[in-house]
Structure formats: C-alpha cells, structure tokens
C-alpha cells in the first residue's frame, strides 16, 4: 500500500509544484493521475521514490515512511518500487537482458553487477518476463536496436522483475504512437493485475486513462482537485481539473491535448529532473 500525506515540493526557484497532496493506493488497483501540463504530476511520482526530494509531508510504503530514510535504507525501499519512464530510460548500449536484469541491481554487489554475474533465479525470471512482455528471443539485442514499443516493453520488464510493491508509471505513452500506446498500456495493466501490483500512472491523454484505470485522480496546480471512478469523470469534473472550475466553450479536445503535450515539453525543460 502506498500513501502520501500532505506531500509538498517547492523547487529552489520558489515554484510550488506540490501544495500538499494526500493520496492512497491499495490492493491491485490502477490509479490514473490526470491533469494539465505543469500540474505537478511528474514531480508527484518522483517525490514518491525521492528521485526528486520532497520538501514537506510524508510518503508511506506499507508501514515505512520513505522521507525519514537514510541513503542506504532509501535504496532498499526503492527495490520495492518499480518505475517506468516516458523516455523509456533504457541503457541504450546494453542488451535487452542486461536492461531487464538491472531491475535486480539492488540485490547484487557492484562487483557482480560489473561482471554481469546475476543469480540464476534472476536470469530464469528475466526469461519468463521477457516472454510475458512478448520479447522472447530478443535478449541479446541491444536496446538501441529496438522500436519505441519494444523499448517500453523492456521498461515494463525491468520494473516488474523487481517484484515491486507498487509501479510508478510516468507518461508511458508520450513517446509512442496511438496504436502502440494501447498495446503497451494493455500489457502493463495485464501484467500488473496478474502479479497483483498496484499502479500509479501519470497520463495526459484522458481517453487512455479512462480505458485502463480503476480510479482517476485529478491534479491541478499542485493540488488534488478531483477523485472518482472512470464513469464519474463527466464534463463538470473535467472543468474542475483542466479549467479551474470554469466551463469550456466548445473547443476541440484533440487540439487541446496537442497543446497540452507541447506545454508539457516546455515544463520538462524548466523543472529539474522532469520528464
């Protein structure tokens, strides 16, 4: 179970990215976090595993409060948190197998990692997971030889092999075409359900969020402004999340999403560690 309590992040620039977000995710539910660009979605996900250091509030993974942990204990806690990235973040020059096995790095010594000497049960599991994500016989390909969809499958495999207690997924489809996006999200949610892992997924495409989530939360300007089931996300709810409660005046949503994607890239450049 993951729970954040009044989680805050103020960047050194004075920019208040998170103004106290409280959220909990239990069982094996899939929670989609939607919201306009710059709302703080990426920052929120990164504050959970402290890739971005929060400036206030608490994060609980089961009974452990992550913000109180020292470096060594934080690393141990991160072994239980799988993360999937927008730009895949595979080690490009390494093979698919090495990338998948990197999900087990928290359990092996640096020397063993250097010699790629992983325990045989890890290797066994890596083969099984590669088959599950549809990349059987690809283990010796280099990551930079793969297509975008294949890369994100490796990203999923790397996160799942950690046997995490939660999966954090940051805009998994922004670098993919619509059809591949569906396939990747299908796979991600199926694997998560099979392994009983809860998922927190940042996504700016509302329709995709509706297709795959059990529950939707809306983040706007660093605050949680809406929470509910997928069937409850009506026009009014969208107004609250995207327009601060003001009703919109007949603009095409496709155009808006495109603009949102552009804005997001802008934000990524401004926010340290964003992406």
């Amino acid at each position: 179970m993951l729970r954040t309590d009044n989680l805050q992040k103020t960047y050194e620039s004075g920019d208040e990215a998170l103004k106290g977000v409280s959220l909990s995710i239990e069982g094996s539910e899939i929670v989609s976090m939607i919201g306009p660009s710059g709302a703080g979605k990426s920052t929120f996900i990164r504050c959970i595993n402290r890739l971005v250091e929060p400036t206030g509030g608490e994060v609980y993974l089961d009974e452990t409060e992550l913000r109180a942990l020292g470096k060594r204990d934080l690393r141990k806690a991160r072994r239980d948190i799988g993360m999937i990235f927008q730009e895949f973040n595979l080690v490009e020059r390494l093979t698919v197998m090495e990338n998948v096995l990197s999900g087990r790095l928290g359990y092996v010594s640096t020397w063993r990692a250097f010699r790629r000497n992983f325990p045989s049960e890890d290797i066994q599991r890596a083969y099984e997971i590669l088959e599950r994500v549809g990349l059987e016989d690809m283990e010796n390909k280099r990551a930079d030889e793969l297509s975008g969809g294949q890369r994100q499958r490796v990203g999923i495999a790397r996160a799942v092999i950690q046997q995490p207690k939660i999966l954090l997924v940051d805009e998994p489809t922004s670098s993919l075409d619509p059809e591949t996006s569906h396939k990747v999200l299908d796979l991600l949610t199926t694997v998560a359900k099979e392994d009983d892992i809860p998922v927190l997924i940042n996504i700016h495409e509302v329709e995709l969020a509706l297709d795959y989530a059990d529950r939707i939360v809306g983040l706007s300007d660093g605050e949680l402004v809406w929470e509910g089931g997928t069937d409850e996300l009506d026009e009014h709810a969208r107004d609250i999340i995207y327009r601060g409660g003001e009703s919109r005046e007949g603009t095409g949503s496709a155009i808006e999403e495109e603009e949102a994607a552009e804005d997001r890239q802008e934000i990524d450049r401004q926010v340290p560690g964003g992406g």
């Binding site: 690393r75 993360m83 973040n89 595979l90 080690v91 490009e92 990197s102 790095l105 928290g106 640096t110």
Partner: peptide, 30 residues
C-alpha cells in the same frame, strides 16, 4: 551523458557505484 539512463538505475535501488558501472560506463566506453 543521458541522465535518464542513470536515473533508471537509481530508481531500481542501485547504489552510486551500481549507477556508474551500469548506467554511466556503457554510455562512454566507445
């Protein structure tokens, strides 16, 4: 180097040395 690749290794619970060996070195070997 691409920080994202380092970040991914950090996120799996790798130490500083793991990150260098696994996330940095492959990028600069050639």
């Amino acid at each position: 180097i691409d920080r994202g690749q380092m970040e991914a290794i950090e996120a799996t619970g790798g130490s500083r040395l793991h990150t260098i060996v696994y996330g940095v070195v492959p990028q600069v070997i050639p």
